[in-house]
Simulated scan of single mutants.
Amino acid sequence: MVIALQAYWREKRWDGLGLSLAGLCLVHCLATSIMLALLASAGGFLFSPLVHEVGLALAIVFGIVALVKGLFVHGFMMPAAVGSLGIGVMSGALTLPHGGDEILYTMVGVAILALGHDLNLRASR
């Protein structure tokens, strides 16, 4: 039983980390918007471009590792294609000026990437 759980965790951990990162990103985007509305000075750090660039780098690393690994495990291309689209939308959002549109596109990209991770998990079952 323990060995089976360890094998399951080894196969699923990258998608789990990717989904967790996507959730943290959504919380970050929502919290930043709320904090900026309430406390302009406190929201400055979370609204920093550096936070977005580091978050995108982590999303790309987790996305590539999890989705490519899933492709080799289950052989379905759809999760990798959906996840890649999400990473592309998030990357495109970094080219927009800071503000409403950038936050909106980032959240859409995160949701698409999370869908790719979810499809990857479902295909691995």
Rank of each mutant, 00 (worst) to 15 (best):
I3E: 15
I3T: 12
L5T: 12
L5M: 11
Q6H: 05
E11R: 12
K12A: 05
A22K: 01
G23Q: 03
L24D: 00
L26A: 10
H28N: 06
H28E: 08
A31M: 12
T32F: 09
L38Y: 08
L39G: 02
A40S: 14
F45E: 09
P49N: 15
H52R: 14
H52W: 09
A57L: 15
L58D: 07
L58Y: 13
A59M: 15
I60K: 09
I60H: 06
G63W: 02
G63E: 08
L67V: 09
L67F: 07
V68S: 10
F72T: 14
V73A: 14
H74F: 12
H74M: 09
P79C: 12
A80H: 02
G83V: 05
G88H: 10
M90A: 13
G92N: 10
L94I: 11
T95H: 09
T95Q: 11
L96N: 02
G100Q: 12
G100M: 11
I103Q: 04
T106D: 01
T106N: 06
T106G: 03
M107V: 03
M107T: 03
V108S: 04
V108P: 02
A111R: 01
A114P: 04
L115K: 02
D118Q: 11
L119N: 02
L121V: 05
A123Y: 10
S124I: 01
S124P: 00
R125K: 14
